[in-house]
């Protein structure tokens, strides 16, 4: 169950309260997130939308432990990550988060297999055990026959699938996706979305995704918009627009 009004219980998987983030650009102080709340449970698939500069990426960075907020708290599976040291945060990230980026971010000199194996190198698994996990992950994304290919030998869609395999191989608590279909054509984008939906439905994966593509956002359970530094549900945004508040033309299928 996804909530943005701070009414969720502390037992949600991801529990964010009063999140503030400001930074300085060119001497100006920009308050990009203000008093943001969010509750996400396991198995939820949430899409984030909003105009450029609205802070979607910032929110994702904070949720993924790549950045620290100016104020507020983020709790994931009971761990409060906002005040963790850099070292601990790195470890936490390895265990709990799977990243999927728009630009794939695969290491070009490593094979698909080796790229997917990377997160497992941070664990104590033996070489055979790692091999098993990697093969499984690549099997899930349908690239078992391309294990020893280098990224330059794969198509865009295939590269993104490798990224997803890498993101799920260590069985993280949730997946963070930043415009995963942004660089793909319609057909590949659909394939990727189908794959993600399978992960959500069949494996009960929790997915938080930033996108600007309404068709992609449609597939999610809930679409949230970033508006004035906080999250608003899509349907409510419709109402706000009627009340005269400015917003980008966003439609959403609403909660599913």
């Amino acid at each position: 169950m996804v909530r943005v009004d701070g009414s969720g219980s502390a037992s949600s998987l991801i529990h964010v309260r009063g999140l503030d983030k400001k930074y300085y650009r060119g001497g100006e102080e920009i308050h990009v997130l203000q008093g943001l709340n969010l509750d996400v449970d396991q198995g939820d698939f949430v899409a984030f939308m909003g105009p450029s500069g609205s802070g979607k990426t910032t929110l994702l960075n904070l949720l993924g432990g790549l950045d620290v907020p100016s104020a507020g708290s983020i709790t994931v599976a009971g761990d409060e990550i906002t005040h963790m040291s850099r070292g601990n945060l790195t470890e936490w990230r390895a265990r709990h988060v799977g990243f999927v980026f728009q630009m794939y971010n695969l290491i070009p000199v490593l094979t698909a297999f080796q790229n997917v194996e990377l997160p497992l190198l941070l664990t104590k698994l033996s070489k055979t055990e790692r091999r098993k996990h990697v093969e499984t992950a690549l099997g899930v994304v349908g690239l078992s026959d391309r294990m020893n290919h280098f990224p330059r030998q794969l198509s865009g869609g295939q590269e993104q699938r490798v990224t997803i395999a890498r993101a799920i191989v260590s069985d993280p608590t949730f997946l963070l996706c930043d415009e995963p279909t942004g660089d793909l054509d319609r057909k590949s984008a659909d394939e990727i979305m189908a794959l993600i939906l399978t992960l959500v439905k069949q494996d009960k994966k929790t997915v938080l995704m930033v996108t600007h593509d309404p068709q992609v956002a449609d597939r999610a359970d809930v679409t949230l918009h970033l508006n004035k530094g906080a999250l608003v549900e899509a349907s409510k945004l419709e109402g706000a627009r009627l009340e005269g508040t400015r917003s980008e033309g966003v439609t959403s299928g609403g909660a599913r």
């Binding site: 070292g87 790195t90 990230r93 390895a94 990243f99 971010n105 070009p108 990377l118 997160p119």
Partner: peptide
């Protein structure tokens, strides 16, 4: 720099 950032995002420490 992108590769390095990826590795660190994945959890490889400084």
């Amino acid at each position: 720099s992108r590769e390095i950032a990826t590795l660190r995002a994945l959890g490889f420490g400084a």
